[in-house]
Computed example of a mutant assay.
Amino acid sequence: MGIFSRFQDIVNANINSLLDRAEDPEKMIRLMIQEMEETLIEVRSTSAKVIADKKTLERRMAALTQDAEDWEQKAALAITRGREDLARAALAEQAAATETLELGHNELDAIESHLEDLNSEISQLQHKLDDAKAKQKSMLAREQSARSRLEIRRRFNRDKLNEAFEKFERYERKMDNMEAEVESYDLGSKDLAEEIADLERDEAIDEALAKLKARMDKKDSGE
């Protein structure tokens, strides 16, 4: 468990929360995956060493088992030959081999328990590693999208949009006032066609006035 303990923050990590604290999420994810891969290699290497130790211990235990059986046979042979002293010595050797064998069983149990822990760690880390690789592209896309939206909101927040709209409306109103001022200068003024028409009307009135005066003069003179 010692090898893997310093990587528990990775195994149990909420990757999104790590991204929130990352200045460069792409680099962060890449480093996380690299660290997981390196840890997986280290744990597998440790597992291989423990498996090798287990095989060595099993060979020693097999040899001790054989030794215990051999000493028992020797003790039996010594008894048949009337050599109780040799039989006792052989049984003492058998007892020593059996005691060492019991210690071997305890050590083997500890190794097997360690291997189970390592296998669990490997499985857990492999799952996290596969999950991180599968989510790598989508997480980067989500992060970039979120940053883009955030940047847009920062540049064009509601207050700035309202300010822009107000400026535009003020400018539009200014243009309306300028156009109205220009049009006001045209009020009461006549174009060339209208002035000529007025002249023609004045001339017709003058002619009518002259004719009326002439008729009145003739009437007054008795004609």
Rank of each mutant, 00 (worst) to 15 (best):
A90R: 02
I152G: 04
A95M: 02
R155K: 06
A62T: 10
I10Y: 14
E172Q: 11
A78D: 03
A204H: 03
S47H: 12
D159N: 05
S145H: 09
S148N: 08
H105C: 00
S123H: 06
I51K: 14
L199W: 14
E37A: 15
S5Y: 10
I152Y: 10
G104D: 02
S17P: 01
S45D: 12
Q124K: 08
V11P: 00
A63C: 05
I41N: 09
N16L: 09
D191P: 04
S145W: 05
K135P: 00
R158H: 12
L31T: 06
M139H: 08
E179F: 07
F168N: 02
F165N: 02
A141C: 03
I29M: 15
H105N: 10
E166F: 02
E99R: 15
H114K: 14
A97M: 04
A90P: 05
R155M: 07
A97S: 13
I29V: 11
R170I: 07
A141S: 15
M216L: 15
R170A: 11
R88V: 15
V182H: 08
E102A: 13
T100K: 10
L118D: 06
H114W: 09
S120E: 08
R153D: 04
L125H: 04
E35G: 03
R21G: 14
M178S: 09
R153T: 05
D202R: 15
N157D: 15
E35P: 00
A96N: 12
G104E: 00
E72D: 14
H127I: 02
E26K: 12
Q66K: 14
I122Y: 01
N162G: 13
T80C: 01
L18K: 12
M36D: 07
E163C: 06
M28F: 12
R21N: 08
L118V: 01
A204Q: 14
L108Y: 05
E37N: 09
A92Y: 04
A87K: 03
G2V: 11
K174Y: 07
A164R: 06
N106P: 00
E200D: 13
T65P: 02
K219W: 03
A75M: 02
E151I: 13
E116T: 07
A97Q: 06
D24N: 15
L101Q: 07
M1E: 13
A132V: 03
A76K: 07
S148Q: 12
I15V: 15
E169M: 05
Y171M: 09
K211D: 14
K167E: 07
R6L: 05
V182M: 06
K219D: 05
L115H: 03
M1C: 12
H127D: 10
T39V: 07
S148A: 15
V50P: 02
L125K: 03
M36S: 07
Y171K: 08
G2C: 01
V182W: 07
A90N: 05
I51D: 14
Q94Y: 06
K160N: 11
D176W: 03
F168S: 09
K211R: 08
Q94S: 03
E143C: 05
I122T: 01
D85V: 02
S17T: 12
K174G: 12
A164M: 05
T80M: 01
G2Y: 13
R170S: 10
A87G: 06
D20E: 12
E151K: 13
E207I: 13
K190P: 09
